[in-house]
Design a protein around this nucleic acid. Structure first.
Lengths: 214, 214
DNA sequence: CGGTGTGAAGTTCTTCACAGCC
DNA sequence: GGCTGTGAAGAACTTCACACCG
């Protein structure tokens, strides 16, 4: 058995999302064909991806929706709670804190930080904003696993360094930089400008590229 | 000459961002090696990517920073203005409208829509919020190229359908769905939950995957 | 039948390695 | 000497196609 390719791991949450949807629609069993239609991908890819982890389907029927969802949650490590801190509570940080999509998936925002004294002390959706100086004490005490960085580009790298120094090993970065982190730390950057800039290449040419989801 | 791979196109904005930074730092010439260090990628990849579009470097020296940036802007179609509409002005939509990173890259938000009557009529960063019913008249009149969707998942697909019907061919979707669009329309979905869910796979295992930027 | 699981084939993407130029 | 541009090699990923099973 080989190492699971990173692309495969990035598709699992997509499958999970579709399965939850199907479950809400009352479907109990789904084929790779049906799932593929929803997700705009080939059935073969879905089957292959799942086969890295085991045999979850039944020939002639398909996959049990609820059961496969549970399997994926376990594989991804979503069968537990993840404690998240948000650094930077400007408009973006506040939108992140109040976004209702994180909690149902087990991501709990337990701390928020900002340099601005006028923001410090405010309570946003039950989370008190603290001065960034307190990161070093609060992060370890709260057992924070993941940091979300929503500060200006000019300060993002230093915030990331500090998070890493505090033992945070997963970082979701919203600043338009390429973060430098040591081995063992997982960073992902979300930058809408990069996405738009690649999009204009296609718009200019009036041809659409393959659908990229996620 | 072959068709340019989509992955290559998605890296060009990354190069452009790094070049702008280097330019600010006063550097006039950069090698693929140096650029690669910043961006955590191999020099060979950078050279290969650029070679799809022409020969922009000088042997023994490297690339002229300002000139290469200009070339990339032209390739990507950033040497013009792109008119953008935001649909949904809840907390996320408002954060998007007030994000200062779009305008310098030529993306101008010229319209905003929402269903909520209490939001309609408000002016956010110079953009008046209109009722969604007016999309059909306003979008063509304003010549909108790109739509940013920041509505709840339950309404995202219908909003996307409407944008497409109004001639919008590029869509940046923030709702947690897999959008269905006709050929010729480019959609990209940004979903932080999917990103976090893939991240926990690695955190659980305490090994870091390759850096994924963008 | 219908649909999974999977080696093997096919395709795409990345890296190598070196000729060629400054 | 240093670095680009690029065919060719190599690695990674996707799709095929079919044995097998409910």
């Amino acid at each position: 058995m080989v190492e699971v390719p990173e692309v495969v791991i990035e598709r699992l949450p997509l499958y999970l999302r579709a399965l939850r949807q199907l479950q809400e629609e009352g479907l109990e069993v789904v084929s790779s064909q049906q799932l593929g239609e929803r997700l705009q991908m080939t059935p073969a890819q879905i089957r292959k991806d799942l086969s890295y982890f085991g045999r979850f389907g039944k020939q002639g029927r398909g996959y049990n929706v609820r059961q496969l969802a549970q399997v994926l949650r376990t594989i991804l490590g979503l069968d537990r709670e993840w404690r998240v801190a948000v650094v930077g509570v400007g408009r973006l940080g506040r939108a992140i804190i109040s976004y209702p999509g994180f909690a149902p998936e087990g991501f709990h925002i337990v701390a928020a930080f900002d340099v601005d004294p006028s923001l410090v002390g405010r309570v946003l959706d039950g989370v008190e904003v603290r001065p960034v100086e307190e990161m070093d004490t609060v992060l370890p005490r709260q057992g924070v696993h993941i940091g979300i960085v929503a500060v200006p580009a000019s300060h993002a790298q230093e915030v990331i360094d500090r998070l890493v120094a505090c033992g945070v090993r997963g970082i979701l970065n919203y600043a338009p930089i390429t973060p430098q982190v040591p081995e063992g730390v997982t960073v992902r950057t979300m930058d809408p400008v990069l996405v738009l800039q690649a999009m204009t290449y296609h718009l200019k040419r009036r041809v659409s590229p393959g659908l990229r989801v996620g």
